[in-house]
Nucleic acid binder design. Structure first.
Lengths: 248, 248
DNA sequence: CCTTTTAGTTGCTTTTTGCAACTAAAAGGC
DNA sequence: GCCTTTTAGTTGCAAAAAGCAACTAAAAGG
């Protein structure tokens, strides 16, 4: 685009670049994978097979490999598949944490993603490591985690609750077909407060995001519930107003 | 904490770690610095002094230096001061972008922060490089930017608008003392739509975040306006409902 | 066929918002 | 001085939205 001289000096610069490169921090990607089972929010943890924190529980993740991973997002997807066998749930970048002290191996930055999935869909331990679903109480799990994973998990839980207030993401915690009472229960479990049935239904129906599966119902111990499917799995839609504030 | 054998094997592991380390991507921190001046949202851009994209406009930023920077956040603060001379405005992490292609020098990840500041407070060009405030129209600036900075800027603008909908962050674009019409104007400029005066004031006053500076007023061409100060500069508070949706 | 259980609706009250008209306090022209 | 213009700030009411509770609906089980 520019003249020949600029082009050649750019080429020279790039050639010399390797020699002059900055000292680099290490770079990892970690995952906070949420699911709801047994009426409780759970997070996926793995037992560390190596030092540091060998034998301790941690968020799944690991080093980004510039040869295999085309991008940070691709690395997150790769680790998600390795860990759960699931390829396309809801996956969103949370935040990047990096400092000199957070890992005894040195200056390491980690980009953390959070994922939502249906617990049945997951096949644990594909990565050879011991893994478990740990119930989330308050803003974390009952036991301590490796590295700075406890505050990271707390951030993820806060983000999840906050996004639940004004978006539809909870549908990603349910199978493709679900009922309105199931969806409401999911919100209640994560927000930790009961919601009014009629207000909840009004809100969801007005958002016009659900498609009624005509004639399909789910049986239970009472009247069968109508099944629905989420209309646009990719687009994230917003409620004009937060969902709790005035719970019942 | 564990037994001696575990301790010694951990020490050994850490000693051997350097040899076995992964190939690392390079790591930079970039800034999207917003201000409002002349009734328009502006973003700070710098002219690149070196290849690649030498002479082109880009978001300010650069390589993280593990020897100087204790953390990614600290690196962002350092670059903010280098670029603007301002140390403590509103600074929030936006997102991390990283891939093989986004920079001709190779696999580089960048963590992008976005900052809000009062335009008068800024002293440009402390970093020797040419810098300018570029007006934001729609979701970006009128000319093309280096690297993938155009979509990054679009993400930042979207995040700014979205946060304005349900938080108080606009106060950080104004000097410490400001009037309600000034605050409303700031919202209108960024959201690109007129807001109803009475609804706006009700909303802000109910949030109870402003402190009236009794007896202090700002003169203009009409009735003088009451001056206020934001009460809690650190805490971010939420409106229970988004601000636009039904504009006037 | 009566009770229990859960789903789903309806109607009314309360709260919140949108809107427009109103008052208030200054400046400037005449 | 007073009238017009300009911008700040308030008030009152209609419309919309949400909370709440009582209602109907559809199944299962004894």
């Amino acid at each position: 685009m520019k003249n020949a001289m600029t082009e050649s000096s750019a080429a020279e610069f790039l050639q010399r670049y390797d020699a002059a490169h900055y000292e680099k921090p290490s770079f990892t990607v970690d995952l906070v994978i949420f699911t709801v089972r047994n009426e409780q929010l759970h997070v996926l943890l793995v037992k560390r097979a190596e030092h540091p924190f060998k034998g301790g529980w941690a968020l799944p993740g690991g080093f980004l490999d510039p040869r295999r991973d085309d991008s940070v997002d691709a690395c997150a997807v790769r680790k998600l598949v390795e860990e759960t066998g699931v390829s396309a749930p809801y996956l969103e970048q949370l935040k990047t944490y990096g400092s000199r002290d957070r890992d005894p191996r040195g200056w390491i930055a980690t980009t953390v993603y959070f994922a939502l999935m249906v617990s049945d869909a997951v096949r644990l331990g594909g990565n050879q490591a011991a893994a478990c679903w740990a119930p989330v109480r308050g803003d974390g799990v009952a036991f301590s985690l490796a590295f700075d994973h406890t505050p990271i998990l707390a951030d993820a839980v806060e983000r999840l609750r906050s996004k639940l207030e004004y978006t539809h993401i909870a549908v990603h915690l349910l199978p493709e077909e679900f009922t309105l009472p199931e969806l409401q229960r999911t919100y209640e479990i994560i927000l930790q407060q009961p919601l009014d049935k009629s207000s909840f239904r009004r809100r969801v129906m007005q958002a016009d995001m659900l498609e009624e599966l005509t004639g399909r119902q789910r049986d239970g111990s009472g009247r069968p519930a109508q099944l629905y499917r989420f209309r646009e799995y990719d687009r994230l839609t917003f409620f004009p107003r937060s969902i709790s504030r005035h719970a019942r």
